[in-house]
Design a binder for these strands. Structure first.
Length: 718
DNA sequence: GAGTTTGAAACT
DNA sequence: CAGTTTCAAACTC
């Protein structure tokens, strides 16, 4: 599965590729002095790896065929049932090398670490239990798992736990032959359990290296191992170009810390994803924080943004910068937690990072911990807002729970290399979710999670104890046809009417926007979960024809030009570019030099355009006024009922019908009749009689009004 | 709602 | 790359 084609690596972000910016240890490569012979010889030459401190009192082979004593059963059920942690190949070997003293780093080293180097193209930073990453071609999934203490019972082949100085380190090696991971724990001033006070701020290093068929190195820098006590790591300036998490842990007062590294590799030998996890073992429960690094490509990214990750119940949005392109997607109570990163300099390239989280078991105490900060190098996408999205809960194996029909993942968990879409050009908002297989990717269409949420939120909310569903914010949407994000978000997508395209061509707006068809009028629709294979093929076909097929057409113009312009320009012949046939006009932008239109009237000084715009504005104002009026009326009606209900019983704030009783009405009528009789008696003309009656009616009303403020019933006397 | 027009996407 | 066809949305009646 060519997750990352070689030619696409050149598109990787500068920050990622810039190894100079990566915090690397300068220590010369050191061999594992006591490399256990359990390591499986790799078919490939071992990739040199760099380590910091190699006072190695213990080396543990992490190969799946390691001796039972070298394995650990530290992984909890929730972890081991996760597909991403399932080892499928036994060739990957990792050596966990804890330091002698508790203050010494713990380093995972390959079994054959004789030629360690520091030529990593990327860095993964893990600070205080959070994750980071920035490998040349990887994404990260941050994984948080909480489990009860008793859950540590599942033995996981290829997983090793070491407890240096009271800390436990677990490593699960998953991957193809020859892949290695180096995990180096930071210096820790205080042992777990002693955990009083602040953790040391100096960053420690936590490295993940890949050896074997690939030569890229994936060091992971750990700012500070998660302490049992509350700790906040500080990040060095050198880490600015790395994804970082400063995690403040409040989980437990004392408990061992475990780190899990997993690496899932697809059947073609390319790394699919790497997980780095830590496990905080508290008095009552464990908290797993792990990341999954998914190989990917990305466009150059410049900005550094910050993400704050809360606990499993957190519902706050990651406070990214103003042009956020990270969306938190979470399911309270679910084991999976997703964060969608939109990595696009022009709002067109998207990368999804999925956070994988397991909530506490019902028997465990509520987790009130894990407020983490992630500093990520993420390109800015224009005018992005964020929305909490609640996807369907996932099972421990990474599959969506299907509470409604066909809630399957789009891309099969089994590899489909021939249709694996280019991850940099997936439809907007595409979500990569862990599949059921070891290397399973799930390519969810843009907003699919939202779609799921919209249809299933009530269930989720009710089951997860969301107190206020209305608190969900509007999901960020990519500029659609040039509309602003808010416009696109507020306006429901129009249902398509496709008949012949199976909704798998760009003719279909749903497909073009990376969405599933939902509530559409299409026939023979394949743009759904039932036809995930066909859809994936269609996506690939579109990308083959046009690698930017799913990128927004409305992008930033050149310097000095309009802020927004159509990337390709229109080709109108008859519409004068003043009808919605014209994509420029539809996007409410003027035609530019890139357009090939004939008879264009969609330019700045065009009188026709001005007239149309004026009319359109007027119409819009009318619509807004009508909407506002309706809203106000609805509000008033609602308010009327709200205020009326208590007034009837309480007597306060009385409404007219509470004092214009039947008796009052009858009395009023009697007064009016009497007035009419008097007019007849004095033989007044009809006009005068009517005036007398009206005047009497006015007096009656005045008496009614004056009586309204009194608690007793009004009396009407003529 | 049916039919027509239009231009992007797809195809050759 | 250009010409043609297909397609679905926009538009008209």
């Amino acid at each position: 599965m060519d997750v990352v084609s070689p030619e696409l690596n050149i598109l990787l972000p500068d920050e990622i590729m810039d190894t100079e910016a990566i915090v690397m240890d300068d220590d010369p490569p050191a061999e594992s002095p006591t490399a256990s012979g359990q390591s499986q010889p790799s078919d490939d030459a071992p990739i040199p790896m760099e380590t910091d401190v190699l006072a190695v009192p213990e080396i543990v082979s992490l190969c799946s065929d390691a001796t039972p004593t070298q394995r650990t059963q530290a992984l909890t059920t929730s972890i081991t049932t996760d597909s991403t942690l399932c080892s499928t190949t036994s060739a990957t070997q990792l050596l966990l090398t804890p330091s002698i003293a508790s203050s010494s780093p713990l380093t995972l080293r390959p079994a054959t670490a004789s030629t360690l180097t520091s030529t990593s193209p990327g860095v993964v930073s893990l600070t205080s239990g959070g994750l980071q990453k920035l490998s040349a071609n990887h994404q990260i999934i941050l994984n948080k798992v909480a489990s009860s203490p008793g859950a540590d019972t599942t033995r996981s082949p290829g997983t090793t736990t070491i407890t240096p100085g009271g800390q436990k380190f677990m490593v699960t090696a998953i991957g193809k032959s020859g892949q290695s991971i180096v995990l180096q724990l930071p210096h820790t001033g205080s042992k777990p359990g002693s955990g009083q006070g602040e953790a040391k701020a100096h960053p420690q290093h936590f490295k993940v290296l890949t050896i074997g068929g690939r030569t890229d190195l994936k060091p992971v820098m750990v700012g500070q191992a998660v302490s049992s006590a509350s700790q906040v790591s500080t990040l060095q300036a050198q880490q600015l170009k790395t994804v970082q998490i400063a995690k403040k842990t409040q989980v437990s007062s004392a408990g061992p810390i475990k780190f899990i590294i997993t690496k899932a590799v697809n059947n073609k030998g390319l790394t699919a994803q790497t997980s780095v996890s830590n496990v905080i073992t508290g008095n009552h429960h464990h908290v797993f924080v792990s990341c999954v690094i998914i190989e990917r490509t990305a466009r150059p990214m410049k900005p550094v943004q910050t993400v704050t990750v809360g606990g499993p119940q957190f519902k706050t949005i990651f406070p990214l910068s103003t042009s956020s392109n990270v969306q938190q997607i979470q399911v309270p109570g679910s084991r999976f937690h997703y964060v969608r990163l939109v990595t696009a300099t022009t709002g067109s390239t998207f990368t999804i990072v999925c956070f994988h989280m397991t909530s506490l078991p019902s028997t465990a105490k509520p987790m009130v911990v894990n407020t983490a900060q992630v500093r990520m190098s993420v390109p800015i996408i224009p005018a992005q807002t964020m929305k909490q999205v609640v996807p369907k809960p996932l099972t421990s194996s990474g599959q969506l729970l299907t509470t409604q029909t066909q809630q399957r993942l789009i891309m099969p968990a089994t590899p489909l290399p021939q249709i694996q879409p280019n991850l940099t050009n997936l439809p907007p908002g595409t979500v990569l979710a862990p599949g059921s297989g070891n290397m399973g990717y799930a390519v969810l269409p843009a907003h699919y999670v939202t779609q799921l949420q919209q249809s299933a939120y009530v269930t989720l909310a009710s089951s997860s104890g969301f107190p206020n569903p209305t608190g969900i914010q509007t999901q960020a949407r990519l500029p659609l046809n040039g509309l602003s994000t808010s416009d696109a978000a507020s306006r429901p997508r129009k249902p398509c009417n496709c008949n012949k395209s199976q909704c798998l061509k760009l003719y279909c707006d749903c497909f073009a926007n990376g969405e599933f068809c939902q509530n559409c009028n299409c026939t023979n629709c394949f743009n759904n979960l039932e036809h995930e294979t066909e859809r994936a093929k269609a996506i690939k076909a579109c990308l083959d024809r046009n690698p930017e097929a799913f990128k927004p057409k409305i992008g930033k113009g050149k310097e000095g030009e309009s802020d927004r312009r159509h990337s390709k320009g229109c080709n109108c012949k008859r519409s004068g570019c003043l009808k919605n046939y014209c994509e420029c006009y539809e996007a409410k932008i003027m035609c530019s030099s890139t357009c090939k239109c004939v008879g264009c009237k969609n330019f700045e000084e065009s009188p026709e355009r001005k007239t149309l715009m004026h009319l359109a504005d007027a119409a819009e104002v009318r619509v807004q006024q009508q909407t506002a009026a309706k809203t106000k009326l609805s509000s008033q009606i609602s308010d009327l009922f709200t205020r009326t209900t208590p007034s009837i019983t309480s007597g306060g704030g009385r409404m007219p019908f509470t004092f214009v009783t039947k008796e009052v009405a009858e009395a009023t009528c009697e007064c009016l009749l009497e007035q009419a009789e008097q007019a007849e008696l004095i033989q007044q003309p009809q006009a005068t009689a009517e005036r007398m009656i009206l005047e009497e009616f006015g007096r009656c009303l005045m008496r009614i009004i004056s009586s309204a403020g009194k608690t007793d019933c009004p009396s009407i006397n003529c």
